[in-house]
Deep mutational scan, measured.
Amino acid sequence: SFQYVPVQLQGGAPWGFTLKGGLEHCEPLTVSKIEDGGKAALSQKMRTGDELVNINGTPLYGSRQEALILIKGSFRILKLIVRRRN
């Protein structure tokens, strides 16, 4: 089963996490790295392996390109929903 975790990061880029996968690579869009001391790490809500399913209220369909555009369009606040295996 899965758990959906809301994450809100503040203060602008860099957000402190790296993505891998996506439709382009025929795999889920997941968090591959969280930078020590970065905003994602400080939130204590994101983990490597989390799947990104929503950015700023926009549902994602797995495209890494789409996710990067939405993330780049976030100035002060980035709201994410990640899906994690229980």
Results as ranks from 00 to 15, higher is better:
S1I: 15
S1A: 07
F2I: 07
Q3L: 11
Q3K: 07
Y4A: 06
Y4W: 04
Y4V: 06
Y4T: 08
V5W: 05
P6M: 14
P6K: 15
P6Y: 13
P6R: 14
P6G: 10
V7E: 03
V7P: 08
Q8P: 02
Q10S: 14
Q10T: 14
Q10I: 15
G11E: 00
G11F: 02
G11I: 05
G12C: 04
G12N: 07
G12Y: 01
G12H: 07
A13Y: 11
A13L: 06
A13I: 07
P14D: 01
P14E: 02
P14H: 00
P14V: 01
W15A: 05
W15F: 07
G16K: 03
G16F: 01
G16P: 04
F17N: 04
F17A: 04
T18D: 15
T18G: 10
T18P: 01
L19C: 03
L19M: 07
K20A: 13
K20H: 10
G21F: 05
G22E: 00
L23F: 10
L23Y: 09
L23R: 15
E24P: 10
E24S: 08
E24V: 06
H25P: 07
H25E: 15
H25Q: 14
C26E: 14
C26T: 10
E27W: 07
P28H: 00
T30A: 08
T30S: 08
T30I: 11
V31F: 03
S32P: 02
S32T: 09
S32R: 07
S32C: 15
S32F: 10
S32I: 12
S32D: 15
K33W: 11
I34G: 03
I34T: 03
I34Q: 05
E35A: 12
E35I: 14
D36S: 12
D36C: 10
G37H: 07
G37F: 06
G38L: 02
A41W: 11
L42S: 10
L42V: 10
L42W: 08
L42D: 13
S43M: 02
S43W: 02
S43Y: 05
S43L: 04
Q44T: 11
K45R: 11
M46T: 04
R47I: 09
R47L: 12
R47K: 12
D50C: 00
D50A: 01
D50N: 06
D50W: 04
D50M: 02
E51F: 00
E51V: 05
L52D: 00
L52M: 00
L52F: 01
L52Q: 02
V53A: 11
N54C: 14
I55Y: 00
I55W: 01
I55E: 00
N56F: 07
G57Y: 03
T58Q: 13
T58H: 12
T58F: 08
P59A: 11
P59Y: 04
L60M: 08
L60A: 06
L60C: 10
Y61H: 15
Y61S: 15
G62Y: 00
G62F: 00
G62N: 05
G62K: 01
S63L: 07
S63Q: 07
R64S: 08
R64W: 09
R64I: 12
R64E: 08
Q65N: 13
Q65K: 12
Q65L: 08
Q65V: 08
E66G: 08
E66N: 11
E66P: 01
A67C: 01
L68F: 09
L70S: 06
L70N: 06
I71F: 05
K72D: 12
K72Y: 08
G73P: 03
G73M: 10
S74E: 10
S74R: 06
F75Y: 13
F75K: 15
R76G: 10
R76E: 13
I77M: 13
I77Q: 14
L78S: 04
L78E: 02
K79P: 00
K79Q: 12
I81G: 05
I81W: 07
V82K: 00
V82I: 12
V82A: 05
V82E: 05
R83A: 03
R83D: 03
R85W: 08
N86W: 14
